[in-house]
Design a protein around this nucleic acid. Sequence first.
DNA 1: AGGCAGGTGGCCA
DNA 2: TGGCCACCTGCC
Length: 310
Amino acid sequence: MSTPAWSEWRPLAGWTPSAATLAETLDGGQSFRWNHAGGIWTGTWAGGLAQLRLENGRLHWRAPRALQVAVAASLPRYLGLDRDWAALADSMPWRSDAHLAQAIAAFPDLRLLRQPFGETLLGFLCSATKQIVQIKQMCALLAERHGAPLLETGGARTPLRADPAAKGLAALPSRRLPTWPELALIPEKDLRQCLLGFRAKYINRTAQYIAARPGWLEETEHLPYADAKARLLELPGVGEKVADCILLFGAGRLEAFPVDTWILKSLERRYGLAGWKPAQVAHFGRTHFGPLAGLAQQYLFAWERRHGGR
DNA sequence: AGGCAGGTGGCCA
DNA sequence: TGGCCACCTGCC
């Protein structure tokens, strides 16, 4: 077992989350590629690998030396440091909405990640009727078995390889998530081996769909919200909820308002929407919370998760 | 030990 | 358009 040579810890300006807000942002269901151990968060996206930690209330980061330059360039955008979140949060209708105000107060400076589009699609294709822990396992297995190495391999410096029999969460990630061209070459039965169950078929067919349409994924990412969503809905395994998650967490579209069981419960309880169907709740959310409905959703989601069952 | 889990697609009236 | 149900299987 070898550990990458890490760069020095460096302060990360522009975001000073509480421990709870940091955890909720990295491991609250937006991304499935972050893990926490000993006060350090380790995460990976595209070809990047980084660690984050809070020290005296300040956020610090480091990366394997071989990836330091690339991570320094991509981390700010990934964490949304290029947006004014204080102004965005202030623009939400919290002044007239005590529930929203309470959720914002509980997770001050919560962020929406700006993840790679294709990886977000993959992660949420895995998410149907699964809990976060299990989705993380699926992603870890997909990466370790089918993804390209994050670091140079060879000789004694071969990166830590997850034990195929292990859970796949404890070890440091050594490989990135497979890309869609790579996924198109993986037989469905091999995908099923990654704990995907019936989701393997969705991923396989989506990969075939994308492979048959060069440029389709890249174009979709940059289309206006409504057009991008309509295109995502063409993919097998992508419905209303998953499409909105992809656009919210993987394309920065803050108007996307995914309605899942948590939001259903939250709005039912807090806004008296008992008996409302998902499509009705989605309409309520978009009209009530406005163009930042997705951000409001994330605060309410975090709040509901913390207080689930009450 | 068995039911449940960040949904979606297909089929029926 | 609306309601039901199968789909996989590891975890709490």
